[in-house]
Simulated scan of single mutants.
Amino acid sequence: MMTKTTLKPGQKGTKRLMEKYGERLICVHYRYDKQTSRRYTTVELVEEVSDWETPMTRISQPSEFATSRRVAVRVDYWEAELRQQVKTCIWRPRQKLWEMKYKNVIVLGLENRLVGEDEVVPE
């Protein structure tokens, strides 16, 4: 059996099925069977909608291991208030980076300032 045509809701040939299935209709397939010389009309429907966890959601809720690992964060010199908050962490003057636990990065909201491992020069 081969699929010759796939139509999206609203295209010519889907009107009757749109009335029947409404918002649940995803697409309509017209399949042809050469052996029996028949055409089959099949539909794809949404059966259920539920929440799912994206990879980014999982990252925003890190494991205990992930929160205890040390990461490098860049804080610019003129950001005096933020620098004051991270002064309890380790300063790496050669790299001009602060080293801190990832859980502190989350608490301070510094996720967008994380420095990749390729940018960190070994001590």
Rank of each mutant, 00 (worst) to 15 (best):
M1Y: 08
M1N: 07
T3E: 06
T3Q: 06
K4H: 07
T5Q: 12
T5W: 05
K8H: 11
G10A: 02
G10K: 02
Q11C: 04
Q11L: 05
Q11P: 05
G13I: 09
G13D: 10
T14R: 03
R16C: 00
L17E: 05
K20H: 04
Y21W: 14
Y21D: 01
E23T: 12
L25I: 01
V28Y: 04
V28D: 04
H29D: 11
H29Q: 10
Y30C: 01
K34M: 13
K34T: 13
K34P: 10
T36S: 15
S37I: 03
R38H: 10
R39S: 09
T42L: 10
V43G: 05
V46S: 02
E47M: 11
E47T: 12
E48V: 09
E48C: 06
E48P: 01
V49E: 15
V49N: 04
V49Y: 01
S50V: 00
D51H: 10
W52N: 02
Q61A: 11
Q61M: 11
S63F: 06
S63L: 10
E64Q: 14
E64R: 14
F65V: 13
A66I: 10
T67S: 13
T67A: 08
S68W: 06
V71L: 01
R74Y: 12
W78N: 10
A80K: 15
A80R: 15
E81I: 07
L82I: 12
V86W: 04
V86C: 05
K87L: 13
K87F: 10
T88Y: 12
I90P: 00
W91T: 06
R92F: 06
P93I: 08
Q95G: 10
K96W: 00
K96Q: 15
K96M: 07
L97F: 05
L97R: 06
W98H: 02
E99D: 09
M100Q: 06
M100I: 03
M100F: 05
K101V: 07
I106H: 09
L108V: 02
L108T: 02
G109E: 04
G109C: 05
L110H: 02
E111T: 14
N112S: 14
N112K: 14
R113A: 09
G116C: 07
V120E: 09
P122A: 02
E123T: 09
E123K: 10
